[in-house]
């Protein structure tokens, strides 16, 4: 045990005492949002028309934050691609995966696509949405690469999808700005709460989010996978 570990331990114990002292204050109701949450819960079904209120917070009340979040993800994925760089064309690939992963990749691919699309399109009705479904789509496109490492992902197509989805998100926001006076204001009325075609433009926004997250994560995983191992 050296000096660094001992000082780290002392620091952690002190911080722990401080945080546990905060526990007493934390048992006050509505500490963080101060009643905004209750207002949103009461008015969201009529104003926005989503059955899943988290979705209405994400895309309608705090839609600008989601745009910023997508920007952060885009920057992180781009920077990771930039740092990892292009692979040299004569670098050797990992060995092919065995029979089990090969067959499983073929069988799983359509089901994963279906599940991802379902979760994205029902994001305004049930738990789930663009982020979760996007991660599942990325997994669907990554498993075949894992099964046969020599067949690469087409980065051109994934970047095109990503750019298109991001532009669609901003375009829908701009339509809201010119039509209703607010950036990302929901369009097309609310519809009947609980139907698949309801909540105005929110399902379209979530579709854009899902495609963007899926393309970004798939591109990121493929970039990491394409970097040569030197063993």
């Amino acid at each position: 045990m050296n000096f660094r570990e001992i000082s780290g331990l002392i620091f952690i114990v002190g911080l722990g005492l401080l945080l546990f002292a905060l526990l007493k204050i934390l048992f006050v109701e509505q500490l963080v949002t101060g009643g905004i949450g209750a207002n949103i819960l009461a008015t969201a079904p009529e104003e926005v028309g989503t059955a899943n209120i988290v979705t209405s917070v994400l895309l309608a009340y705090r839609g600008l934050d989601t745009l910023g979040e997508l920007t952060i993800l885009f920057v992180a994925a781009t920077a990771a691609g930039l740092v990892l760089g292009q692979r040299s064309s004569d670098a050797k690939h990992d060995p092919d995966a065995g029979f089990i992963l090969h067959s499983a990749a073929d069988v799983l691919f359509p089901f994963l696509i279906l599940l991802g699309a379902y979760i994205i399109l029902h994001g305004h009705l049930t738990p789930g949405g663009g982020f979760q479904g996007g991660a599942i789509l990325a997994a669907a496109f990554f498993i075949p690469i894992l099964a046969s490492p020599a067949s690469p992902l087409n980065h051109r197509v994934s970047s095109a999808i990503e750019g298109f989805a991001g532009a669609a998100f901003i375009l829908i926001g701009l339509f809201g700005l010119f039509g209703k006076g607010d950036f990302l204001a929901p369009l097309f009325g609310t519809g009947e709460v609980g139907n698949l075609f309801s909540a105005g433009s929110l399902p379209l926004l979530y579709l854009a989010v899902g495609l963007k997250v899926g393309a970004e994560l798939a591109g990121l995983l493929a970039h990491l996978h394409e970097t040569e191992a030197n063993d």
Binding site: Q30, V32, T33, I36, G37, A38, I40, L41, I53, V54, S56, V57, L58, R62, D65, T66, E69, I72, L73, A76, A77, A79, A80, V83, L84, F131, A135, V213, E216, L217, L220, H223, L224
Partner: peptide, 26 residues
């Protein structure tokens, strides 16, 4: 119903977390 605002915050934070991890590991 429980407060939806922290849930929306955490939802985005999880996805950002993966992006940050991937950049750090690169």
């Amino acid at each position: 119903m429980v407060d939806p605002i922290p849930q929306a915050l955490v939802l985005t934070a999880i996805v950002i977390g993966v992006g940050v991890q991937a950049l750090a590991l690169a």
